[in-house]
């Protein structure tokens, strides 16, 4: 019995000593003085404008975005655009659409500033977006011919409406070219979440996503202006406190 008591008490003593030593070794984390809100960047996509001119009106897209800088690390973003297509296939089927699209997401700056160093304005970003578009479209001049029995009919599918949801994996860079003026590019892997029903007239083009092929690649080249709206915590002076009293 005495032996058991000695064993248990020595075990408790040992545990307490180890805990005390471990607590001494724990470093208190340094306080992060980076403000939460560090500005809002309004940006315009130049790549989509350029590609719209190059596609001879077959498809067009214009988009802009607003991105918030949180702690120079997290960049929540909202992108809004207008896109459309007017495409005639090799077999003379015509597809027309136009509509608004929106994307919501967040980027993370992968460059970590060194200790006691001013945060860099050059960013290497990786992020994710969730995109959505509700758009009308029409498909016309669909010809069905019966080669054996004879006969031919032309079908039109006007005023169809679709809602598509997709996600994008984004990576890119952004640099401050002059004070508060930013330029950058992103490359995107777009993946459709909404499924088309087999046999139904599906859209050929989805605004904001591109051709409706399940997955797409996208490229954006943005020019942006950073609005510095610092959020400082107002501290009362002794005079102000006295006045109030």
């Amino acid at each position: 019995m005495q032996k058991t008591f000695a064993y248990i008490s020595s075990l408790i003593l040992c545990t307490l000593t180890l805990t005390a030593v471990a607590q001494k070794n724990i470093k208190t984390p340094e306080k992060d003085n980076t403000p939460l809100f560090n500005g809002l960047t309004i940006q315009l996509d130049v790549a989509s404008v350029a590609s719209s001119f190059l596609s001879n009106g077959e498809s067009y897209s214009y988009e802009a975005g607003a991105q918030v800088d949180l702690k120079h690390k997290y960049y929540p973003v909202f992108e809004l655009g207008y896109a459309g297509a007017n495409k005639t296939s090799n077999n003379d089927i015509n597809f027309k659409t136009n509509g608004l699209f929106g994307r919501l997401g967040v980027d993370i700056n992968l460059i970590n500033p060194k200790k006691d160093q001013k945060p860099t304005t050059n960013l290497f970003l990786a992020g994710i977006r969730l995109g959505m578009s509700n758009f009308p479209y029409n498909v016309s001049n669909v010809i069905i011919t019966d080669n054996y029995w004879g006969g031919s009919e032309t079908f039109n599918y006007p005023a169809k409406i679709s809602t598509k949801v997709w996600y994008e994996i984004v990576a890119g860079v952004r640099v401050e070219v002059t004070k508060n003026i930013y330029m950058g590019w992103t490359i995107r892997s777009k993946n459709m979440l909404s499924q088309d029903i087999a046999g139904e007239v599906a859209p050929w083009y989805v605004p904001g996503f591109g051709t409706n092929t399940g997955n797409n690649w996208g490229f954006n080249y943005t020019i942006g202006y950073k609005l510095q709206i610092p959020m400082k915590v107002k501290t009362r002076t002794n005079k102000e406190i006295k006045k109030k009293k």
Partner: peptide, 14 residues
């Protein structure tokens, strides 16, 4: 009934 394939392939009658 009509069965739409794609813009490139058009429509079938099933």
């Amino acid at each position: 009934s009509d069965y739409y394939l794609s813009l490139e392939c058009g429509c079938l009658k099933v």
